[in-house]
Design a protein around this nucleic acid. Structure first.
Length: 883
RNA sequence: GGGAGCAUAGCUCAGUUGGUUCAGAGCGUCUGCCUUACAAGCAGAGGGUCGGGGGUUCGACUCCCUCUGCUCCCACCA
């Protein structure tokens, strides 16, 4: 059958993925083999595949496929994350577009919509991963809100509550007015933001609530909060304001009287040195308020609007209010001036809303003990971070961690299992039944109807930190004395985790905590932290910039293998990836190269009588050694998670060594058959190469592996053993490399002298050059080689050197003597300079005495080689000059 | 404000205890080729004072100090 000159991925990818699924090659069950386990970083259940996923899951798939081919029992657990805030936002937005407000729904009604949404959109991303070729064990797919997974979360909550780690308290939290929930400190992103610095006049009160003509100036970025001011604060050391001590001032517009207090928190040099204290809307002010017993007046509601306690601008959004109050203050004569000002402002990671510091009742998990142990796990090397520069960051975070705010004012998630009695006390139990029983111990009269469950749900990370445990045995979390199930006992701890550094703390650190707590062992051995995918200008991929390509479009255009290779080419661990479509083109081109190598080999016909040419014999011998050498190199790269280096080594082995040198060396002349030995060796090499590439490019390798031989139904390249590194003869490899250089030398001369490849030339080489590789030179350079001690008339030809071997091509009548003299003189000049530096070293006693023997010997060899080269060049020069 | 990291060819990056002829790779560039696997290709070539300065050493891309320029993380200066 005639094969197309181009590889067509669309014709093969779906076919082979279906084949793999049909034969359950991805499925794993515990057995006597060594397990190799990866849990997927669960993507948002309603998310769509983006380039970051492509990078991450390609790496995961390469590792898992490599392990599978290494004979391990490889298991990659897929699944999705319920992503409370993100998903709830999407559902709320969707309902809103249909004219339904969340507030108008009961919790149950809303959750019904949410589950419908999840059923419709959930899992899209998992099907996209199939397009990429991900070899996940789909039978084990998990979702963080599966009933048993949710149960694990509840049990964990109860466990830590009973342990005394979970408590409830009023805290200043980061309020997200768009998500209508508190978020953790880690979910707040601080960005320098241009705003205004308003200088306001606060008039001194005469004591009866009436303004005098004296005033002080206070600088603030948030004039809309002045109605909640509880005091004005000055530094007690500040002599400028001593006259203010004990006075009262009036809040502009509402004329409310508030005291002047003193606190060293105020910096005299900043702003006007005079601070308005608004305990309800600023973390520091809250602290000051506590010290000075100030009342807390909360004037902003869940949506970020002023409430009735503000007295004015009630119902206005905080930013509208800021704008409006500026005018009102100016009109009232309270606005001294407005300056531009840049200051860090907190934004919600999920909704990008400006965070409103707000007091509220929340649930917290004590972190100190958990963090201490989790730090130890990394410090001791039980968990290795790759690259290890993240250890510093990790340590810093673990040593400064604050208690984890785990409650969220949302409905989509695991509801906190705290049940309130009518008197306000509460019990924490895994089920309503158990809660009732416990409540009756407090008050026997309580009925099920009297109990009210806490309205909040748990932070999503409070479920995903259990992921490496609960996917195998959801009964384990919360029960550290439970006997792990068969799967958990076999697969835990998992082997490697591949994820982004942005969730090192959110997720990785907390998984380590949960692992230590419930399994008394870390959840994984190695954490490979990828970079962030950026565009080629270094900008983050984002929808608004429109610089984020759709991976499925790329797969459709170039093929999944090309996309995978393109992503890996530029991905060294921990470094950001500058994505460029050109890399994916390179991947496509590589597919094509593989495809065409197959076309060549598959077209060869054996000629039963043909004996193996010498050139083929040495090429076969050389490539076998080269293959062994490269496998060893690749294994070394893999062991150090240098995936892109491993890939490049294979890429060069295939393209340069196999295609450009080996195949050209053994390729039979036009219309002639090939000998059996060479054909068999070629097929063996090609198959080994396919196996080496398979983890990175699963589709094309499966296609060609099947095409090259009669395979049985149920056979697959993905379960073949990865080629093993055998011994190799580095002398042969070097000799062959020198032969290649000699070939290049002749080709170079041909190009310079414009001599066609079809014209056979003479090539002389000095005795001593390994004769074994000469047939290859003869074939690929189209030369007739003579080994000799004497080049004869070197004036009528061109010489060149490979390492220390001298070659000569007689070219009667074609030599530009002047040019050749100039070239040789340049060689001599360069070598003499080089020789000088070498001799300088060797004449330095300190060098000779203190440097290792090997290094000194090397310098002596350099000296000898250089002398030889000079001698050769000088001889040629002499001949040219006719001396 | 605190901490960490980076700076090597036009671009993206390797360079693994300071020592192989070590200044590298891929891509791009230039030159010549539609050569019977592949022009998404083949052959060949050019290209860098390893950010600046100083120091340690027989020897520094590699270790130390300093300057400059980027990046990231953490952080409550209104």
């Amino acid at each position: 059958m005639e094969l197309s000159a181009k590889y067509n991925p669309s014709a093969t990818e779906d076919k082979w993925y279906a084949y793999w699924l049909e034969h359950k090659f991805f499925h794993s069950e515990p057995d006597e083999r060594e397990p190799y386990t990866i849990v997927i970083p669960p993507p948002n259940v309603t998310g769509i595949l983006h380039m970051g996923h492509v990078l991450n899951n390609t790496l995961n798939d390469v590792l898992i496929r490599k392990a599978r081919m290494d004979g391990k029992n490889a298991c990659w657990i897929p699944g999705t994350d319920h992503a409370s805030i993100a998903t709830e936002n999407k559902v709320v937005a969707k309902l809103k577009s249909e004219g339904i407000e969340k507030e108008s729904l009961t919790r149950g009604e809303f959750l019904k919509y949410a589950w419908e949404w999840k059923e419709k959109h959930g899992g899209i991303i998992l099907s996209q991963l199939r397009k990429l070729g991900a070899s996940c064990d789909w039978d084990r797919t998990k979702f963080t809100m599966d009933p048993d997974m949710s149960e694990a979360v509840i049990n964990t909550f109860v466990y830590f509550y009973r342990k005394g780690y979970i408590y409830r308290g009023i805290r200043m939290v980061n309020w997200d007015p768009v998500g209508h929930t508190a978020v953790s400190d880690e979910e707040v992103i601080h960005r320098d933001t241009v705003s205004k610095f308003y200088h306001l006049r606060y008039f001194i009160s005469d004591g009866n609530g009436n303004p005098t003509d004296k005033y002080i100036i206070i600088a603030t970025t948030r004039p809309e909060t002045i109605m909640a001011d509880a005091a004005i604060c000055i530094n007690p050391e500040d002599e400028r304001y001593h006259w203010l001590k004990g006075k009262k001032v009036l809040i502009p517009l509402i004329n409310k009287e508030i005291p002047v207090i003193e606190d060293s928190y105020v910096e005299m040099g900043f702003g006007t040195g005079c601070l308005k204290v608004t305990p309800a809307h600023d973390v520091n002010d809250y602290e000051i308020g506590l010290r000075h017993n100030l009342p807390v007046l909360d004037i902003i509601d869940d949506h970020g609007r002023l409430n009735e306690k503000a007295l004015i601008l009630v119902g206005e959004d905080r930013f509208d209010a800021r704008h409006k109050i500026e005018g009102m203050l100016r009109e009232a004569g309270n606005l001294e001036k407005v300056e531009d000002y840049t200051s860090p402002v907190g934004y919600s990671e999920r909704t990008n809303a400006v965070i409103e510091p707000r007091l509220s009742m929340q649930w917290f998990l004590k972190m100190d003990d958990l963090a201490r142990e989790a730090l130890e796990s990394v410090e001791s090397g039980k968990v290795k971070l790759i690259p290890d520069k993240y250890r510093n960051t990790y340590r810093h975070w673990m040593e400064n961690v604050r208690d984890w705010c785990i409650s969220r004012q949302l409905w989509w998630g695991q509801r906190i299992p705290a049940y309130y009695l009518p008197d306000g006390s509460f019990v924490v139990e895994p089920t309503p039944e158990a809660a009732l029983e416990a409540a009756r111990k407090i008050n026997p009269a309580v009925t099920a109807e009297d109990l009210r469950q806490d309205e909040d749900v748990l932070d999503t990370w409070f479920s995903s930190w259990l992921w490496p445990i609960s996917v195998f045995d959801p009964e384990m979390p919360g029960h550290p004395d439970h006997k792990p199930g068969k799967d958990l006992a076999y697969y835990y701890p998992t082997s490697d985790l591949v994820t982004g550094p942005d969730i090192l703390f959110f997720w990785v650190a907390r998984m380590i905590m949960a692992g230590n707590e419930f399994m008394h062992d870390v959840p994984f051995r190695n954490v490979y932290l990828t970079g962030i995918v950026r565009d080629k200008l270094g900008r983050k991929m984002s929808k608004t910039l429109g610089n984020s390509p759709d991976p499925l479009d790329l797969i459709a255009k170039y093929g999944a293998d090309a996309v995978r290779l393109g992503m890996l080419l530029c991905s060294s661990a921990g470094n950001d990836i500058l994505y460029d479509e050109a890399q994916i083109e390179q991947g496509r081109n590589f597919c094509n190269k593989i495809w065409n190598a197959y076309r060549l080999i598959s077209g060869w016909k054996t000629d039963g009588d043909a004996v193996q040419p010498e050139a083929s014999a040495v090429a076969v011998k050389w490539f076998r050694n080269k293959l062994h050498e490269t496998v060893a190199l690749v294994e070394d790269h893999f062991s150090k998670f240098r995936i892109s280096d491993a890939l490049m080594a294979i890429y060069k082995l295939f393209w340069d060594d196999f295609c450009s040198w080996y195949l050209e060396a053994v390729k039979p002349a036009y219309n002639t058959g090939i000998d059996r030995k060479t054909l068999e060796a070629s097929e063996e090499f090609f198959e080994a190469l396919l196996k080496m590439i398979h983890p990175v490019m699963p589709f094309i390798t499966e296609e060609l592996w099947h095409a090259m031989a009669d395979r049985q139904e149920g056979e697959t390249i993905m379960l073949q053993r990865y080629p093993s590194a055998g011994a190799y003869d580095s002398v042969l490899i070097e000799n062959f490399g020198n032969a290649c250089e000699a070939i290049a030398g002749v080709r170079n001369i041909r190009q310079q002298k414009n001599i066609s490849l079809k014209e056979t030339l003479e090539l002389k080489v000095r005795t001593g050059f390994p004769t074994e590789v000469l047939p290859v030179i003869e074939k690929l350079a189209n030369v007739k080689v003579t080994v000799t001690d004497s080049f004869g008339d070197t004036a009528s030809g061109v010489s060149f050197m490979v390492k220390t071997s001298e070659f000569f091509v007689p070219l009667a009548g074609m030599v530009d003597t002047a040019e050749e003299i100039a070239r040789l003189e340049a060689v001599i000049a360069y070598q003499e300079k080089f020789l000088e530096t070498v001799r300088k070293k060797l004449s330095n006693e300190k060098f000779v005495n203190s440097a290792p023997e090997k290094v000194v010997a090397m310098e002596r060899k350099k000296e000898a080689d250089s002398l030889a080269k000079i001698a050769a060049a000088e001889a040629s020069l002499k001949a040219l000059k006719g001396e």
